[in-house]
Design a protein around this nucleic acid. Sequence first.
DNA 1: TGCTTAATGTCGAAA
DNA 2: TTTCGACGTTAAGCA
Lengths: 275, 275
Amino acid sequence: MSEKPHTLVLHNPGIDEAAREIAQGVAQKDFMIMLARCSVEYEGRGASKLGPGDRLIIVKPDGAVLVHRPMGYSPVNWQPESHVINVDVLKDAVVLRSVRRRPKEILVIRLEQVYLLVRAKGLTDKAEFIEYMDEAEISDYIARHPEVVEQGLQIISRERRVGEGYVDILARDRSNNYVVIEVKRITANEDAVKQLYSYVEELRKANPEAPIRGILVAPSITKDALILLNSLGLEYKQIDPVKLHKEARKEKQSKHSRSLLEYLGKKEESLRRRR
Amino acid sequence: MSEKPHTLVLHNPGIDEAAREIAQGVAQKDFMIMLARCSVEYEGRGASKLGPGDRLIIVKPDGAVLVHRPMGYSPVNWQPESHVINVDVLKDAVVLRSVRRRPKEILVIRLEQVYLLVRAKGLTDKAEFIEYMDEAEISDYIARHPEVVEQGLQIISRERRVGEGYVDILARDRSNNYVVIEVKRITANEDAVKQLYSYVEELRKANPEAPIRGILVAPSITKDALILLNSLGLEYKQIDPVKLHKEARKEKQSKHSRSLLEYLGKKEESLRRRR
DNA sequence: TGCTTAATGTCGAAA
DNA sequence: TTTCGACGTTAAGCA
């Protein structure tokens, strides 16, 4: 389906050859990488100049340009996106000019010597970038919103010491049964099931009369773990960490706005009092 | 003196070969670039997961690691610096783990297929990165510190309309002569000289009696411009934008501290008044 | 499009 | 080492 990426590599190309290839690469929207001795000038929101040195230059199909020095995390110069990129040969150097529309900015890279030039075609990357919450955050969120596990749950306690460990969440369901909730950020395995079971058993020992449920909350569960879980009379509730993350973020923001409103409210109030 | 950088390039290496080369590159602190199909996981201040896709991976000698998707300015995953990077072969994939000490963070890149692997040695980049001030900032700084142009200058006005344009700075020298100052951020050319001359002439027309000097302030000047300038009886004062930038930054900071002190002083004062 | 806010922000300098 | 402020911040979510 997706054809394999193809890379064209030039070692120490001459100026003319490098210029031709870079121009073609830009025109064909290749993903390009250059290792080169170059100078860089930038002018736009700020202005900067960088004398000759060996650097990595990246030109992406969408016009993003990055110049990286041999050390350090952040690029020394860049262009988040280019409206136009043009390539010229000037006095034994390839000059790459990237112009951004708004804000109006220009990045000029003068390549004096190209050690390596790579044109990559057909790179495909459609994977979704997922930002997780960590286990504590998921647990916090569930404690605030127990309905994502089951309707009608009432939280009793968090991180309660039971036997040798700590139960993530202890709650009561609508029928007043105790519910032990164990949260996992990633695929739950048999260890997670055993852990949950040990808490449930400890609580049963302490409260022989009360019916005690155990729910394992995780984005997924291994086959073996599910079999073990069922055989032990425990339950599994699937959650979507991405969805939770988004919800939590929304909540965070609205909470922030609310506190600002509260602040403004109080300010108004104090003003009123003075009048 | 500085030996020419050397690049070692592998096309579509096998897993074992890639792992060996990457491990060597890490050990030898090479600057490494990989184009590969990979998956990435991160956990530290945040946590994320990225499924398989074609990406550019950069590993710098100082342990900075960057993972770039085919589009966009910013890396999808990164590590500003690594305390340790280790390389393993696991189930037909090279696994690169970068661990950061503080904050404790781990970045795991699982390379399923390496299209291109580059090890670069001997990249040298000692150039100073210079951030300029723009013309207005230089002009502002000179207005605050006219001594960088000449001792004893007294600023009369800024951006005064003269003829068809605006004089950057108008001042008086110690002998009470008018001084027209034209500021250029970059190498001044003949146009700059002509511009300055036109202002000087306009002022001379308006004040036939007064002796009027003209000073062109710029980091450098072209040969032709200097000749023209001299023939027109104008002057050139070289400034170092780097130095100015640094001075201005210092000033900004001390100004900030001063205003904070003032603030504290006023606070004390108001407290004293209440007592 | 412009504005506001969070970020694995990063980075540098002062305390 | 921690804190603080600036940044060519960038990037996402809304009005």
